[in-house]
């Protein structure tokens, strides 16, 4: 029996990796994948608590989160496609036409 803290720790590690990725990576697609990683860390946390509390609620939330993440991915990828056509680059540092 693996204790609940192990699952939570794994989720926390995934979340931190995702956060660092978003902050450090400069490619829009990679940043987006890191955000997805963060969402999956949240899902893992939900499932862990759901199992720990002996409730089904947490697992249903995961389904909601996955649905929303899919919708977000559809919109996000469309935006990324438009940006790459317009700017010929997926580097966020190039997205600097507006400052101050």
């Amino acid at each position: 029996m693996i204790p609940v803290t192990h699952y939570l720790a794994l989720a926390a590690i995934l979340f931190v990796i995702g956060t660092c990725g978003v902050i450090l990576q400069r490619n829009v697609l990679t940043m987006f994948m890191c955000i997805e990683l963060m969402l999956n860390a949240v899902n893992l946390t939900f499932i862990t608590f759901s199992r720990f509390l002996n409730q089904l609620d947490g697992q249903i939330f995961v389904l909601f989160v996955m649905t929303v993440a899919a919708a977000e991915a559809a919109v996000g990828l469309a935006l990324i496609v438009i940006l790459s056509r317009r700017a010929d680059s997926l580097d966020v540092d190039q997205a600097n036409t507006m400052k101050w």
Partner: peptide
């Protein structure tokens, strides 16, 4: 400008949602 605005809003919005 509109592309940039959308992509910035999207990335930071999704980031904060997480």
């Amino acid at each position: 400008k509109s592309n940039e605005s959308a992509i910035k809003y999207f990335l930071l919005g999704a980031f904060s949602t997480a």
